[in-house]
Simulated assay, not measured.
Amino acid sequence: MKYAKDIKRYTDYSGKSALVMLLTQQGLWALFYYRLFNSVYVSNIPSIFKKVILFFGVLFQKKAEIFTGITLPYSAQIGEGLYIGHHSGIIINANAIIGSNCNISQGVTIGVSGRKEHRGVPTIGDRVYIGVNAVVAGNIIIGDGAVIGANSLVTRNVEGGTTVMGVPAIKVSDLDSQEYIL
């Protein structure tokens, strides 16, 4: 179950119990609604029932978004073990693809950008660390194990196992996310 792996990432980082994490972490609250309604979105239940449930899903997710400052649309594709370090100001595009065991810091935007055939949303690999206030936008690929530094603007592909930072983001190191991802 993906949500169980999300919780495990939180308990691994903090050393606190799952119950404490569930009661205190806004990232887990937003992930709960995302996982619940994403499971409906990808299910094979009849279309009429799915539409009704997802209508209420939008309302519940909007409530979570207002309360936590985290936008996780049920149609985004997010792998297991997502860790949201701090709440607030996190916006994920409804068409974004995020791999497993990624870390997203506060203030991060993963969104649409570009023109014509370059317009689109990012595909983010596994074990990617995205620093505070980073913007990752456009039809780009972020490779497995990449690190995106704080306050960076990423609008081009990032090789796996590298660190990028700046505006626009450029490769600054061959260090991967191993030190950031538990």
Rank of each mutant, 00 (worst) to 15 (best):
I141H: 15
S152E: 12
G166Y: 00
N151K: 08
I91F: 09
M21T: 14
G57V: 10
Y83Q: 04
Q25L: 11
F37N: 13
M165N: 05
I148A: 05
K51L: 08
Y33R: 04
V42Q: 11
Y10R: 07
I7Q: 02
I181S: 03
G160R: 07
Y129F: 13
I66W: 03
Y34N: 01
Q61S: 12
S39I: 02
Y180I: 01
A96D: 05
N44Q: 10
G27P: 11
V108G: 06
A150H: 01
G114S: 07
F49V: 12
T68W: 08
S39K: 10
F49D: 00
Y3F: 15
Y10M: 03
V108W: 05
A137W: 00
N151P: 03
I92Q: 11
L22S: 08
Q25F: 11
S173I: 06
Q26D: 15
N95D: 15
R119E: 10
V112Y: 14
V58I: 11
I53P: 00
I148L: 07
C102N: 15
M1R: 10
I78M: 12
G107N: 07
T123Y: 00
L31I: 02
A30R: 15
T162V: 15
G149E: 09
T68K: 02
A96L: 05
I66F: 06
A150R: 12
K51S: 12
G57Y: 13
T162D: 07
T123P: 08
A94L: 03
I110M: 01
P46F: 03
G89Y: 02
V108F: 07
K62A: 14
P73R: 09
L153A: 12
T11Y: 04
S177D: 01
L182C: 05
S105V: 00
S47W: 05
A4D: 14
V167E: 01
R9C: 05
F67W: 06
A76E: 07
A137T: 10
R119M: 14
T163P: 08
L23G: 06
A137C: 08
D126M: 08
F37M: 03
I7T: 08
Y3A: 10
